[in-house]
């Protein structure tokens, strides 16, 4: 029956697992567990310039780049925040909670993306909680890591601000004297 559906509708290739294994979210999974995750993923093709999601719209899941380049842009200026390529992933916060997208993702070249959606992750937690928890823990670690990065950045920016303010103060003092 499986082969019938596969031949009718096209089955997933083996290359998906290779890509999946390189992604931090799934790196601790066995190949059998990766198979289970792969069944949840949607593989989609985008042409260059096509938007993957748009800032301000509700988000339902994350995307993994199997092949190609994606530009994460801030609206309405269209300024590029970061460029992502093979093996990178984005939109992972939407896996935890249905949130509004904070940036627009646009295909820079023709790309193949794998997407994982929150309802599927929740269903996985229900059906195979051991595997679901593994994915969720990895996700929590990643989000925590990003939080550390962001707070480091905030700290740097605060320091820079203080330096600027001090320099401005010095200049003002200099003018006053």
């Amino acid at each position: 029956m499986q082969s019938l559906w596969k031949s009718l509708l096209g089955g997933p290739g083996a290359s998906e697992n290779d890509v999946l294994q390189t992604i931090p979210l799934f790196e601790e999974l066995s190949s059998r567990e990766l198979d289970a995750v792969r069944r949840l993923l949607h593989r989609r093709e985008y042409v260059a310039g096509e938007s993957i999601f748009v800032q301000g719209e509700p988000g339902l899941g994350m995307y993994i780049i199997e092949r190609g380049a994606v530009s994460i842009q801030s609206e309405p200026s269209g300024r590029e925040l970061v460029e992502l390529t093979d093996g990178d992933f984005f939109g992972e916060i939407a896996l935890l909670n249905e949130v509004i997208r904070t940036a627009t993702a646009r295909a820079k070249t023709d790309c193949t993306l794998l997407s994982l959606f929150q309802p599927d992750l929740l269903a996985l937690l229900d059906r195979n909680s051991r595997l679901g928890v593994k994915v969720l823990l990895a996700l929590a670690r990643l989000v925590g890591l990003r939080l550390v990065e962001v707070s480091d950045e905030v700290e740097d920016l605060t320091r820079e601000c203080e330096q600027l303010r001090a320099r401005l103060g010095d200049a003002a003092d200099g003018d006053g004297s």
Binding site: A48, G49, S51, S71, G78, T104
Partner: peptide, 13 residues
């Protein structure tokens, strides 16, 4: 970036 149409281009949307 040249290949990426900006959002101000209505045709892209």
């Amino acid at each position: 970036m040249a290949t990426v149409p900006s959002d101000r281009d209505p045709r892209a949307r």
